[in-house]
Amino acid sequence: MIKLSIFLTRRADLSHEEFVDYWTQQHTPLLSRLPAGEVPVRRYVQLLPTDDEIPGITTADYDGVAEVWVDSIADAARWFTSDTYTTTVAADEENFLDRSRTRFLYATESPIFG
């Protein structure tokens, strides 16, 4: 299983609150309306930052993180290059994301404790 952590930055003309509202109330429901079986995603989680800070620790400058689990990198590549993704999902991302600043981390998990 491959986990993709996708680091998201809002469009410059949106506040963080507008970004969160669009991502959670407009974009996420769009994902659930996609054709069944076309999305090879096993799990999808949204991480929304808090206003918490720890003195001396630098905070990442992202508006959110999408975590996506797929069986293989080939499934991820198939999804992110599919017509459905490019014409529906990516097109809608233009409404709230600065896609030029989106960053992907491809990883496997190695649980240590918990």
Rank of each mutant, 00 (worst) to 15 (best):
D61E: 09
E67M: 04
A66D: 05
R43E: 11
E94P: 07
D63W: 00
A90S: 12
T84I: 13
G64M: 01
P49F: 04
T50C: 12
T88N: 07
I73S: 14
Q46T: 04
D98Y: 02
L97A: 02
G37Q: 10
W79P: 14
F96V: 00
V65G: 03
A90N: 12
A74K: 13
Y62C: 12
L34M: 10
R33I: 00
V65T: 02
R101S: 12
T84C: 11
D61N: 08
E38W: 14
R33F: 00
V65R: 03
D75A: 11
D52C: 12
S82G: 10
P29N: 06
S32P: 06
T88H: 06
V45C: 11
D71F: 00
V39Q: 13
T87K: 08
E93N: 02
Y62E: 05
D61P: 06
L48E: 12
W79R: 12
A66H: 01
N95F: 00
D61A: 04
T81W: 08
V70H: 04
A66W: 02
L47P: 14
I73M: 15
A60F: 00
P29Y: 04
T88D: 07
S100K: 06
L34Q: 11
Y62N: 12
W69G: 07
W69P: 06
S72H: 04
V68P: 11
A74H: 12
V45T: 05
P29G: 03
D83E: 09
L34G: 06
A90Y: 06
E94R: 15
D61L: 01
I73R: 15
F80H: 10
Y44P: 15
T88E: 07
I73N: 14
T102Q: 15
T28R: 05
S72D: 03
T58K: 10
F96H: 07
I54T: 13
D71E: 14
V68N: 07
Y44G: 09
T58C: 10
G37R: 12
D71V: 02
G37L: 13
D75T: 02
A74I: 06
A74G: 15
N95C: 00
T102E: 15
A90K: 13
A36D: 15
R42D: 06
D83L: 12
S72A: 07
G56Q: 14
F96S: 08
V68F: 05
W69D: 07
D83C: 05
D63F: 00
D98A: 02
T59W: 05
E38Q: 15
A60N: 11
A74W: 08
V70S: 05
F80S: 09
T50I: 01
V41H: 11
Q46I: 02
P55G: 02
L97W: 05
F80A: 09
V68L: 08
F80E: 10
E38G: 14
V70F: 05
I54P: 15
F80M: 11
